[in-house]
Computed example of a mutant assay.
Amino acid sequence: MTVVQPPVRAAGCVLWRRVASEDGLEIALVHRPKYDDWSHPKGKLKRGESALAGAVREVAEETGMDCRPGAPLPTSCYVANGRPKQVRYWAAEALAGAFTPSTEVDRMEWLSPAAARRRLTQERDRELIPALLAALGWRDG
């Protein structure tokens, strides 16, 4: 008999800010040295924590930024370490804060939508950028 494990619940944000450039906005990506990957800020939910509260907490922990969450974005479902994982995402505008490197996240970069799409390690993360732009009513950069 196969035991089906419930998915690991996680949440994150596609963090963005307005800039005076051709694109008009930039997206924050974080580098995790443990995996040597570039991704959107995200993480596992704490027991009893709502997905939205967890997403905002993870943004603060990984980027040092306060944010204003907005539209929900597509949920990513995949297998990580042999277990199903479900990550709920929101668009979130960066308000204030400063990045401080840690053992979990050693770098953060603000990139144009096109550059962010190229930098992201996982295809599932790249798909969130056009979803963000559509949610904001922004032209695809």
Rank of each mutant, 00 (worst) to 15 (best):
A28G: 14
E49I: 06
Y78L: 11
G48F: 12
L25E: 08
R17Y: 02
P113V: 08
E104H: 11
G48P: 00
D140R: 15
R139E: 15
V30E: 05
M65Y: 13
A10Y: 08
H40D: 11
E104T: 09
L29Q: 06
P72I: 03
L25V: 02
D66N: 12
Y35I: 01
Q122Y: 15
V3N: 06
A91M: 06
A94N: 14
S39K: 01
H31C: 05
D37S: 14
P113M: 12
A28N: 04
D37Y: 09
C13G: 07
V30R: 04
E26Y: 10
V59D: 04
R83C: 04
Q86S: 10
A92M: 01
A135S: 14
A71K: 03
A91C: 09
K44L: 11
V56L: 10
Q5W: 11
E109C: 10
K85M: 07
T2D: 05
S39A: 08
N81R: 10
T121C: 05
A98P: 07
E26C: 06
E123M: 02
A71R: 08
G70S: 11
R88H: 07
E104L: 15
D36Q: 14
G141C: 07
Q5N: 12
S112W: 06
R126Q: 12
W16T: 01
H31W: 05
G97L: 10
E104R: 13
W138L: 08
V30C: 14
S76M: 10
A131T: 08
P6V: 03
S112K: 12
R57L: 02
V19F: 05
L133A: 06
M108S: 08
G137Y: 14
G97W: 01
E127L: 14
V19Y: 08
L29K: 05
N81F: 13
R107L: 04
